[in-house]
């Protein structure tokens, strides 16, 4: 089969383009050390009982160490607990691990304009760890259509300087 040299050229360029796309992603996950949200392997929860049993029965912030807090958060129709009824307060520059699950349908968790983004699936626990670089208010959106009031499903994370972080609202381990 005879292929025109221009066609050979742009077939070659297409392959270069695909290689570049893959290369950019590999560069991100090796040199830049980017991370994606994880699912706690082997750790499943029963959506029917998650509201009454286990750590999600008491969603909120727990302290692991002075530099590490964890948040058990429920994404449910149509709010985040904690975060929607009143802002979730967290310390800046401190390691924060989110554990998230849903008792009903699939939801999303996104802090717009940041790298924090995961799907929240009933029966699974999505986890991600981050440090909020500065003390300011961050918004949270649900980005998976979850029902009639999906567009109202949002929350706020109020990040305060570590010295001003009030530990009286923590949930005992």
């Amino acid at each position: 089969m005879h292929v025109h040299r221009f066609e050979k050229l742009w077939i070659g360029l297409s392959l270069v383009l695909i290689a570049a796309f893959i290369g950019i992603v590999l560069f991100g996950f090796t040199v830049m050390d980017l991370k994606v949200p994880g699912v706690e392997t082997g750790e499943t929860v029963d959506p029917a009982t998650v509201l009454s049993e286990g750590p999600f029965a008491q969603p909120g912030v727990r302290k692991i160490s002075d530099d590490h807090y964890e948040v058990y958060m429920l994404a449910q129709q149509f709010l985040f607990r904690p975060g929607s009824a009143q802002p979730l307060t967290l310390p800046a520059r401190t390691k924060i691990t989110f554990h998230m699950t849903s008792p009903d349908v699939m939801h999303g968790f996104e802090v717009p304009g940041s790298g924090l983004n995961t799907t929240v699936i009933p029966g699974q626990v999505a986890t991600l760890t981050t440090r909020f670089p500065e003390a300011k208010t961050y918004g949270v959106l649900c980005h998976q259509y979850c029902g009639s009031a999906h567009h109202n499903m949002q929350a706020e994370i109020e990040v305060v300087p570590p010295s001003e972080f009030d530990e009286s609202n923590l949930i005992a381990q």
């Binding site: 950019i24 980017l34 390691k95 304009g113 940041s114 790298g115 760890t129 909020f132």
Partner: peptide
Amino acid sequence: LYALLYFVEFATHAPHIIE
């Protein structure tokens, strides 16, 4: 556009997932 989307929109806006 791919590089912009990846390096500017996805990779540089803190906070990131670190673990």
